[in-house]
Each structure stands twice: as structure tokens, then as C-alpha cells.
Design a protein around this nucleic acid. Structure first.
Length: 137
DNA sequence: GCCAACGTTGGC
DNA sequence: GCCAACGTTGGC
């Protein structure tokens, strides 16, 4: 199983909305680097849900419920989406500032390639953040 | 509101 | 194929 991090601006699609809907199509991605990761996502993989711009924190965990299919928001064949399902809310959200202040998280893609909207998370990073948030799966 | 980082577009 | 111009993302 792999771990990921997906970003959303709360104004556009907030965690609270996601929880209410339970499932969502993670579409509208128009970036080749992000697409590589969407394509690699497998059913059951877990994703941190990060609030960008406002909040700037990881608030919850989603699970991949459907592997990549063509993006319903465009006729352009190049773009794909995955379906995500809510999995668990973090007991305590982990802010970007906390990630920056944590020695073992310095190599996170979130810090290295901050603009990438779908990115991989290593097992070690995943474990560290879960522990920091006081969340048990 | 500013700006750095990065992607895309289009002229040559 | 290069690169300047421009648009977008997202942190500060």
C-alpha cells in the first residue's frame, strides 16, 4: 500500500464538505507531474488531505475508492481523476509550520515541491505525522 | 497584496 | 529547440 497527500483550498473543496459527502471525484487536475501520481494510486491507498492557502494544515485522511478514470470535468482525454472516500479525521490537524519544524520531515515533497497538488508520502513520513497528530488508524 | 516557483504558450 | 512573456499556485 502507498501513501499520498492531496491538496485542496478549503474555499474550493473543504474537508468538512468531503466528510458530508463521504465520496468525491478528485478531478480537475491539469498537471502532468500530479497525473503521474494519480495513475499510480491504488484502491485502498491512503491520502492525507491538506488545506492549502487557508488553514495550511493536514486535516484528515482519505482512502482511494476507485482507481483512475477519465476526468469527468473535461473532454480532453489526457486528464484523469480518482475517487476518494473519507477515512478518518486527524485528532489534531498538523500545520505546515509544524512540518517545517520537524527534523524528520524536511524531505517531504510538500516542502520540496510545494505546488504539486498530488504527491507521494513515504511510510516514515506517514507514521511520523500520524503520531504527531495523535491519530490511531 | 506581494512574490517565488513553476508550467504553458508562442514567436523566432 | 530556445526563451521571453504570461498565468497560476500557494506561502508569507
Amino acid at each position: 500500500m502507498k501513501y499520498w497527500l492531496v491538496k485542496s483550498e478549503p474555499k474550493v473543496y473543504a474537508w468538512a464538505t468531503f466528510v458530508k459527502e463521504n465520496y468525491t471525484s478528485w478531478d480537475g487536475i491539469r498537471n502532468y507531474a500530479a497525473r503521474i501520481h494519480l495513475r499510480e494510486m491504488r484502491t485502498g491507498d491512503l491520502c492525507f488531505f491538506y488545506h492549502s492557502n487557508e488553514g495550511m494544515n493536514i486535516v484528515g485522511i482519505a482512502t482511494v475508492s476507485k482507481e483512475h478514470y477519465s476526468d469527468p470535468t473535461t473532454n480532453d482525454e489526457r486528464w484523469i481523476s480518482v475517487e476518494l472516500c473519507t477515512h478518518k479525521q486527524l485528532s489534531n490537524p498538523i500545520s505546515l509550520a509544524e512540518i517545517k519544524a520537524t527534523e524528520s520531515l524536511q524531505n517531504m515533497t510538500l516542502l520540496k515541491i510545494s505546488r504539486l497538488s498530488v504527491q507521494p508520502v513515504t511510510a516514515a513520513e506517514w507514521k511520523t505525522i500520524l503520531k504527531m497528530s495523535g491519530t490511531k488508524l
